[in-house]
């Protein structure tokens, strides 16, 4: 399955990627939570996943060609 992922709020640097958008093409992709190990992002540090203006749950199914944006979990100060 092919899914494009936009990494926001320091996640790009954390994943060690150059671009903010990464195209994942992996047969193991089924659910939103599956994105994290492929991006080498540990669970718990992504605070929000969105697609098409809709908030995603980790157990939501991914779809072919889906565009997902991941936001880091930080906070104010």
């Amino acid at each position: 399955m092919k899914v494009s992922v936009v990494l926001v709020g320091g996640l790009r640097e954390l994943a060690g990627l150059d671009g903010k958008t990464v195209l994942l093409d992996d047969p193991s992709l089924r659910k939103v939570a599956d994105l994290l190990p492929l991006l080498r992002l540990p669970p718990g540090i992504v605070g929000l996943a969105m697609s098409g203006g809709r908030q995603l749950d980790w157990e939501d199914d991914l779809a072919e060609g889906m565009a997902v944006t991941l936001y880091s979990l930080v906070g104010g100060g």
């Binding site: 926001v8 709020g9 320091g10 996640l11 640097e13 954390l14 992002l41 540990p42 718990g44 540090i45 605070g47 929000l48 969105m50 908030q55 944006t69 936001y71 880091s72 979990l73 930080v74 906070g75 104010g76 100060g77």
Partner: peptide
């Protein structure tokens, strides 16, 4: 990872996630 995120972008990272939510 959380400490690294604070170092990389600090609290301003919250602008994007708050906006999206």
């Amino acid at each position: 990872a959380l400490a690294k995120l604070l170092h990389i972008q600090g609290t301003p990272a919250t602008v994007a996630s708050s906006d999206a939510a």
